[in-house]
Write a protein that binds this DNA or RNA. Structure first.
Lengths: 200, 200
DNA sequence: GAGAACAGTTCGGTCACCGAACTGTTTTCA
DNA sequence: TGAAAACAGTTCGGTGACCGAACTGTTCTC
């Protein structure tokens, strides 16, 4: 497959290439354009870090998840590293290159909210942590007008969010409360399935 | 566009659904997340309108292109209508719902330019038609600071754009010159294969 | 030390994508 | 007017990605 690239076009071989395209969008799509990839990254922005959390929240086939995480790590979008603190488990964390995808994730999410809104309103609302005002479609706080860096974004439940199911996965349950992007969503302590969600 | 979701969780079966997801991003991905779809929409922003232009520029299998165009028309992102003026041919034009995807297309393109730049610089530069200044990653003109509506965006060749090949398709050739988004890229007059220079 | 959680891997079936060839209609030109 | 080309898809067989479920080996907790 590598021999199909001529010198004037990108010499690198990416997972599923769009041959002959001279547009930067096709480079992006080769990295983040596969099925599930942007949903994985959205969860990473939410603070999801462990393999099992991604798998449970996304309901993605585990082999596909393995492939997507590996591809994103090789592309430099995610970093795979030992969990800070106690655990020896590996976690997947956004790199600066991955964080730079935030405008794209935000724009696509905003489009979905605008044209496929649930009854009652948006499912989730991104807010500026400084003044709690919603963030507009172009990433600016509707309250203070500032361009909000991703680390200052709060993801909060909206009117259109369905009620929490009894058997909801821990990620879904955690997202029922406001949460700051890029900070770990779940406790680093392993989850015991003894009493579901009863501990503080 | 008249059809809407009737329940809190989507009851409709979209081309490739992400079941169980309560996030608006998954709704977006069900519509524009399939392979080739965003590249088709990028071309639509460039002013590509006819089936054959998409097919030649993207080098996408024609059956896949048919499927993507049909899906986008059914989703209300594109409108299929007779070509204005002389032709009786059908063309595909962005609806307001499709135009609302511009921030997403721009953000993904900017990410690709930033992290997969060609040698010498960006392949293409989006500029504000009023002052010719480049448009920043969040959609604001770096010259006058205004939020630039998509109709006032000029796509211009950059330093990293490869030289035009002899057998380049008409869309690629037309994009070697600055062009205003959303305006038809090619003449409505049918293209005769005179530039190839060879007889049958 | 037993059992559960965890992070993947393996496997067979199904479906989407791919490239090439083909069909039927419209347009152009001699 | 008639032939040839352009056009907009459709058809088809091969290949590979995706899917759900089951499985493996390691780590953690009690």
């Amino acid at each position: 497959m590598t021999e199909l690239f001529s010198a004037s076009v990108s010499p690198m071989t990416l997972p599923r290439d769009y041959r002959g395209q001279t547009c930067a969008l096709s480079r992006s799509m080769e990295v983040v354009g596969e099925r599930w990839t942007l949903l994985v990254l959205r969860d990473a922005f939410y603070g999801v870090r462990r393999f099992g959390e991604f798998a449970a929240h996304l309901a993605v086939p585990r082999a596909v998840l393995t492939d997507r995480l590996t591809t994103l790590v090789e592309a430099g979008v995610l970093d795979r590293r030992p969990e800070t603190g106690t655990g020896r488990r590996e976690v997947y964390v956004l790199t600066p290159k991955g964080i730079a995808l935030w405008p794209a994730v935000r724009a696509l999410t905003a489009w979905g909210e605008e044209f496929y809104a649930a009854e009652g309103g948006p499912r989730r609302v991104f807010r500026h942590v400084d003044d709690d005002a919603p963030i507009g479609p172009e990433g600016r706080c509707t309250g203070c007008g500032a361009a909000v860096p991703v680390g200052d974004v709060l993801v909060t439940p909206g009117q259109g969010l369905p009620p929490l199911a009894e058997d909801a996965d821990p990620v879904t349950a955690a997202l029922a409360r406001p949460h700051r992007l890029l900070t770990p969503l779940l406790t680093t302590a392993p989850q015991r399935r003894t009493t579901r969600g009863s501990h503080p």
